[in-house]
Nucleic acid binder design. Sequence first.
DNA 1: CTGAAAGCGCTTACAG
DNA 2: CTGAAAGCGCTTACAG
Lengths: 333, 333
Amino acid sequence: MTIKDIAKESGYAVSTVSRALNNHPDVSAEAKERIAQVVARYGFVPNSNARQLKQQQSSNIVLIVKGISNLFFSGIVEQMQNLISSNGYSAVVHYLSEEADEVLVAGQLCREHKPLGLLFLGGNAENFERRFGQIETPSVLVTAPGKNLDFPNLSSVGIDDVAAGREAVDYLFAKGHQKIGIIGGRLCRSQISQLRFEGCRQSFLNHGQELREEYFQIASFSYAGGYRAMQELMLRCPAISAVFCMSDIMAVGAIRAAQDAGKRVPQDVSVIGFDGIELGRYFCPRLATIQQPQGELAQISVELLVSHIEKNTPVRAVPVQVRLLEGESVRAL
Amino acid sequence: MTIKDIAKESGYAVSTVSRALNNHPDVSAEAKERIAQVVARYGFVPNSNARQLKQQQSSNIVLIVKGISNLFFSGIVEQMQNLISSNGYSAVVHYLSEEADEVLVAGQLCREHKPLGLLFLGGNAENFERRFGQIETPSVLVTAPGKNLDFPNLSSVGIDDVAAGREAVDYLFAKGHQKIGIIGGRLCRSQISQLRFEGCRQSFLNHGQELREEYFQIASFSYAGGYRAMQELMLRCPAISAVFCMSDIMAVGAIRAAQDAGKRVPQDVSVIGFDGIELGRYFCPRLATIQQPQGELAQISVELLVSHIEKNTPVRAVPVQVRLLEGESVRAL
DNA sequence: CTGAAAGCGCTTACAG
DNA sequence: CTGAAAGCGCTTACAG
């Protein structure tokens, strides 16, 4: 069943059928009607490969997501998909491992599939600096620091990771904690870890302390990563009374490790996470966390992208605000 | 940059370039070499729209997933993506809401994109009975009851939901519980809920009880759904000492509701979940649950699909086994 | 408002 | 082993 069959069946030429199918203005009401009937009768759907080949682009917006098991991202992806559909485009999700070079992959995807736009969830500024210049597709970098990235087709939306990291540790100091541990990603490999760590350092300085190396423990962004890191930290620095984890998932793992070591949270040790995923509000104890605004992130990114695609509006770097959720996992000393 | 440019640059005809690109046997080593160099120099990637249009099909295997926030599915999706890539195909994930008709959407996707194969994660037998006949693409129905579905291009892989539901409740009886509540999906709309419920009913009968209607509470498959359902249940049947939730996510919500009502889990009320997601092993208390074998489900489904595509092996209905994880959320009375 | 025709970038018989 | 040519199913100037 092709457009040719529809043409034959309806008595119109293929060009007219094509125009009717695409809602072009100059098609008579009668032609529209008759063609619609035939289309409906056969449940015809145009072959998108042919259409896209001809048009030299698809109607797809590709989401490039680093880490499928990232609960924080999956909440955003869900909302983005809805927004993209309601704008008349199709969302295609492409998952990458944490280590993959998202910009390299994006370049290949563009040549292969000619998407209309790209949404990067997570990503490293270094990769963008190195090879984003080759990509001409309108893009938005979401929840990754896009500062200093100056490309005519790259917007960014995200929080201030330094300020957010500082806020987390400030909160622990405000609650009277003095021995504060940090669990986060490898600084040389994860830019957000680096920035949040810098925020921690500032908070320590502001409170008259220096952030000693042994108080920081590297972990992968997973339950198991948080678990092992907390074990290490408790062993190495048993005096620690509070820990800041750079993701809620890590915080869940860390809390479990504390409990398995016979410590209660928050009575014996306090934990604050980062992201504000839904799980945190059901976990026991409810997670204290720095919440990123998922809804805003999704909405602003899609808006920026769509208006760039449709109206060629200039790119922007839009900051969004975090919010401290107190939860139940931090106690005042 | 097209195959034509590569042809010009390398001095060969487009047909030779195409053959070289696709690793066809009868291309001279020299031609292969020279063409590969040009391809590498320009970072050329063939336009997949053109290729797929010509070949009348893509190299895509489409995953149709009901519910993006379904943690149980996302674990499987991750593994499937790896397996699909390592078999030389590309995985495309398409998320649907719980209410969508997956078979209707699949039909459209097939006409539009001509995928090589379809993997359904979740789905309702009724939808398949009604319109799967129109789909000719090799397919596998994963983790949804495919019994009695007799199509020459539909395999299925999944657990025995009746037996699994029975096992969950049997376990609670074995631990001495007598007043047992059930939280699950709407029976008329969710087939797995129906089957698991039937298993519960059998367990009750085997233990000389009848499963009374008020002991069952409908919920959506979410944290919030489990939370509200547990509130209802505690209000309506305060004598209940144990609850079986038809998903781990629901169980997390239910436990939180119990604790917010001042009850400890498992001391005051026991909870067992279903699925065996990673979170359950870090939640406090560790979740008792009926674990579905994610790895096996992913592996067997992809194997069935690929061998059907490549060697036209006949379809099969493969059962997999669940495993009871005791966790810490159920106590013996 | 409608139709005939060119062409998007590939693949693949067919001929040599 | 290589090349010239047809054609996949669409869209879109162009002509009328």
